[in-house]
Simulated scan of single mutants.
Amino acid sequence: MPLNTRILLDNRPRGEASVSNFRIETVETPPLAEGQVLVRHHYLSLDPYMRGRMNDAKSYAEPQPLGEVMIGGTVGEVVESRHPRYAPGDQVVGMGGWQQYSVVDASQPGALRKVDTTHVPLSHYLGAVGMPGVTAWYGLVKIIDPKPGQTVTVSAASGAVGSAVGALAKARGCRVVGIAGGPDKCAYVKDELGFDDCIDYRQHRDYPSLAKALKQACPHGIDGHFENVGGMVLDAVMLRTNPFARMAVCGMIAGYDGQPLPMANPALILINRLRVEGFIVSEHMEVWPEALAELAELVGSGRFRPRETVAHGIESAPEAFLGLLKGRNFGKQLVKLV
């Protein structure tokens, strides 16, 4: 059995997360029991939700245990199998964690899923045709439920979730306006993803200034908003919402390091009769087949061209993760392991 290099959560952050919160080790991979498979990971997914799980605090998911492999989605190849449904060479997606190999009980529902890379690259099953894509689909389709001609805005528009929201909303005939950080990301959102407009929040020092830019980009107001950031961005969007606008709250990355996130104008929820709904995509497994089918078609047809930022080697995961939390990635953040 191969040696396995892996990264564990060594201690919990106080304030901002740092490389010192993690520990790397190399161990022997245990022999397989009946029903297990050995997967060699090709890519590891890094996602903002991981920051919340590093804390020992009440949240929608259990904290990451200290001394255990960091949680994370992976895609890879079966290299050994003692399960009848899997054979060496099968390409699979699962939750293998921050490590080069994982031993998986393939009899557990949802533990592994075979994927077809004929039209969709393997890495996209961690992004556009994976959990981030389904997150975008659920928030847009089930909460925002936009109609053709309506205006939909999305924060962190160049990221794995935001870019998928835009592609799905454009496919439904909406005007789509993104909010992203920096001219390069905004250019990608407009020129490659096909958003109608994109606002660089870094050009605005406060939420009234950002709201003014949103008024120009959304002359008929905002009918639906997909929130990934919170803070100033959310305050600005709320000033531009139409009556009965719908808001899907997916993330609040502006506060993931423990900063408070007060709202400037919460009365607008009442004044505009907003529907504001937070959600966790893992609680809605019933929609995954439908969502993945649409996302795979968008990617396979070339109508959605997601971008990836790729770090190399398992040792690079902590720094890449910290960069993700500061917005240094462009599109989906991955770690290539082979």
Rank of each mutant, 00 (worst) to 15 (best):
A180H: 01
E77P: 10
V276D: 01
S20L: 14
A87G: 10
A156Q: 02
P219Y: 11
L270P: 11
M50E: 11
N265F: 06
H284F: 06
T241D: 05
L126D: 07
A248L: 13
N272Q: 13
D235Y: 01
P31R: 12
S18I: 03
A217K: 08
E77K: 08
S282K: 01
Y60V: 13
E319I: 13
K326V: 04
W137D: 04
Q99V: 02
C198I: 02
F244M: 13
G302C: 06
L334K: 03
S209C: 06
V287W: 03
E315V: 12
N265Y: 03
S20V: 13
L32H: 07
D257T: 02
L268R: 14
E16T: 02
E62F: 00
C198S: 13
P30S: 10
P208S: 02
K332W: 06
G127E: 02
A248Y: 09
V37Q: 05
R328C: 11
A156T: 05
P132N: 00
R273K: 08
P13R: 01
P262R: 12
L44R: 03
A320M: 01
D196P: 04
M50I: 00
L9V: 03
L38R: 03
L292Y: 09
W98H: 07
A317S: 12
Y125V: 05
N228H: 05
A245E: 03
M131K: 05
A169L: 08
N11V: 00
A17G: 14
L292I: 14
R85S: 15
G110H: 07
M54G: 06
I71M: 15
H41C: 10
Q108I: 12
A187C: 05
S102V: 07
L46M: 13
A213Y: 06
A211G: 15
A245Q: 06
N55M: 15
E319V: 15
L234C: 12
L325N: 08
A160D: 02
V19I: 15
L261V: 14
P121E: 11
P289K: 02
G331E: 03
V165Q: 06
V93K: 04
R275S: 15
M1S: 15
V69P: 04
E277T: 14
A320W: 02
L274K: 08
V165L: 09
R53D: 07
I24D: 14
H124L: 13
V39R: 02
M95H: 13
S18K: 11
V92N: 05
S59H: 12
L32E: 04
V237N: 08
S102C: 07
M70K: 07
L112W: 01
M50A: 14
